[in-house]
Computed example of a mutant assay.
Amino acid sequence: MNLLKEKITDQSIIQKLIPQRAPIVMIDALLYFDDTKVISGLTITDNNIFVQDAYLTEPGLIEHMAQTVALYTGYHFYIKNIPAPEGYIGAIKGVHIERLPKVSEQLETEVKILQEIMGVTLVKGIIRLNGEVIMSAQMKTVLKK
């Protein structure tokens, strides 16, 4: 069941959902949220620090996926009126990148929560571009204590 009533694109609200700040914000929309899944959006801009030669680089895709995990955690905290916690990538494996997205293209990233315990979240994520999967990976994130 989608616990999100309508998608969130207001950047002042997005800033409350994730701990990252400019110039490293890699989320511009919360499209879906429930207890086991979150879907984020990002339109690639030419001023993104991970853009090189008009393409979002591999580290940019990985950071976008990590911030999608942060968005999942942050929204949980937001609905309780608590600031989004900081965290970091603990591990990443099985990264498969089909292609890099270009400036002005819109990414839709789906993260499924596999396990969440004591501040550690294990997820499987995919990044889509126009419905085509362009990246998949498994990621473990850890909340900063």
Rank of each mutant, 00 (worst) to 15 (best):
I126R: 12
V111H: 06
V111A: 14
L107Q: 02
L122K: 09
Q115C: 13
I126S: 11
K124R: 12
P101L: 01
I126K: 15
V120H: 02
L107D: 05
G125M: 10
L100K: 13
G119A: 05
Q115G: 08
Q115K: 14
R128Y: 07
E98T: 13
E108P: 07
T121W: 03
V103Y: 13
L100W: 06
R99L: 02
L122M: 04
P101N: 07
V120K: 07
E116I: 05
E105F: 01
L100H: 10
K112E: 10
Q115S: 14
L122V: 04
G119D: 08
I127P: 09
E105G: 00
E108M: 09
Q106M: 06
I126T: 13
T109E: 03
E132Q: 14
T121F: 08
G119Q: 07
I117T: 12
E110K: 11
R99H: 03
I117Y: 15
I126A: 13
V111F: 07
E132R: 05
R99M: 07
T121H: 10
N130T: 06
L114G: 05
E98P: 00
N130Y: 00
L129Y: 03
E110V: 14
G125I: 14
E110S: 15
V123P: 04
I126L: 12
P101V: 04
E110L: 15
I127Q: 04
P101F: 03
L122G: 00
I97F: 10
K112W: 01
E110N: 13
K112T: 06
Q106C: 05
E98I: 05
Q106P: 00
E110W: 14
L100F: 12
R128I: 04
L122C: 02
L114K: 13
K102R: 08
